[in-house]
Design a protein around this nucleic acid. Structure first.
Lengths: 241, 241
DNA sequence: CGGCAAATTGATACTTCTCAAACATCGTGG
DNA sequence: CCACGATGTTTGAGAAGTATCAATTTGCCG
């Protein structure tokens, strides 16, 4: 094999797993090349922090692989997870001065990061990208507002049921033979019990008790700490309210 | 006075109070003219509903005057207010199929409404407008996420204190002689006690009790149902956490 | 196998909700 | 102008739900 011309870096985008699902999806090859030039790949360990709340907003990123959390805390240190970010999602605060929340990898993760200034300039010059970003931001705002209903008006059981349904939706292990159209579905949670509590605005004990209750009631099974099997999706949806 | 040429409708934008603060702020006169052609003014009574949750998303609007609420409810009818919308704010779900929340005027209000399809087309053809809309949507997402911390992790006193500080920030009656740099500040709430409860994820009784407590503690005064005077903003900020 | 962190379980306290009643405010019509 | 009813608000008592604190138990990883 001949070595490629080395006067420009490799275009990672060509082989990018999320090439067509991320906000870059509408760009042509020339534009992708330009974007590739200002971005770089970065690998994060589970638990590694990418952005700190309140810091200057220097980075934005596309998630290529893994799950990350966006979170903030009260003055007295109680944490609230503001959102989970999955492959092909965009992350960070373009056109902003400070990062309004911390970003931490929940699993090993791969992201495609950009200096915010570079990204902002590129976006302003490429309306198709800005449009994609707008559509995503609007969708994220809708999702976030729906979560406000959960935080403000649901009880613990409704919160857990809603959470499990959402996780199945997002993470459903499509390779798993268990998952027929009906019948049990398995999920590997990327979150600890404490993190589930921080998503739902509950304590770890309440999360544990509610999961135990759902198990006793036969709606789910808990074969391992981070494994959940949905046995009765209909009843679970009922309890989600 | 001569009648104006009547081959095109009056351009309301010329006299628009929020002309420079709304998303139209970056448009030139020609573009404003085009936008004016697809929009129309509408007056809403307090309590009048503009959009219903789940309906087809047919309208978007700029708020010219008044305050409106965005809200949703649980299956069993408990309401959660998702946000308040003030003059110069944008409202509705562009590029979407359905309206994800109800919109109702809290006070008499004036809005500048567009058919969503018209607006979507106009926005796609005018990247400066789309950029403004993106910046607003990003800011609104930040604000909404901050509210999640309140809903998920604050107790009733912190919620009320945070709410009052936010309302002063937004509504501070600048014409009122009371408002020096320090000292008491007066606010006329556009919300009933029930609506405050629906913003904070509490019951009306808890809101009432917490307000009474803040009054007894000398942090606020409640001269009328919808009037609040902040007597000790520092201590209020302390209790907001 | 042992040590450690995470999760569960239990007992109790506290906050908030629920239901009920009294009270205040506002607008209306006498 | 005041009485009246309607609506919104405050207050009270008790119940329910969740948090807190403490003690185990479980599962994971070296």
């Amino acid at each position: 094999m001949d070595a490629p011309a080395t006067d420009r870096p490799t275009n990672f985008c060509d082989a990018c797993a999320i090439r067509n699902r991320a906000i870059c999806g509408d760009l042509d090859n020339r534009e992708i090349g330009l974007l590739n030039d200002i971005g770089r790949r970065r690998r994060l360990e589970a638990g590694e922090q990418l952005l700190w709340e309140g810091d200057e907003a220097i980075l934005v990123a596309n998630v290529i692989e893994g799950v990350l959390k966006l979170s903030t805390q009260t003055a007295d240190g109680k944490e609230q997870i503001l959102g989970l970010v999955y492959p092909s999602d965009f992350l960070g605060r373009p056109f902003g001065q400070t990062t309004p929340y911390g970003v931490e990898a929940l699993t090993e993760a791969h992201v495609c990061v950009f200096e915010r200034r570079d990204f902002d300039r590129f976006a302003r010059e490429h309306p198709r990208l800005e449009h994609k970003l707008l559509e995503r931001t609007l969708a994220e705002l809708d999702r976030t507002r729906r979560w406000m209903l959960l935080l403000g008006r649901m009880n613990a059981e409704q919160k857990l049921a809603t959470f499990l349904i959402e996780m199945v939706d997002r993470l459903e292990d499509k390779s798993c033979a268990l998952n027929g159209l009906e019948g049990p579905q398995a999920v590997s949670l990327p979150l600890s019990r404490q993190q589930i509590a921080d998503v739902l605005g509950l304590t770890i004990e309440t999360v544990s008790r509610q999961l135990t209750k759902l198990k006793k009631d036969g709606l789910i099974d808990l074969p391992a700490r981070r494994e959940v099997i949905i046995l009765d999706a209909d009843e679970l949806a009922m309890r989600a309210g």
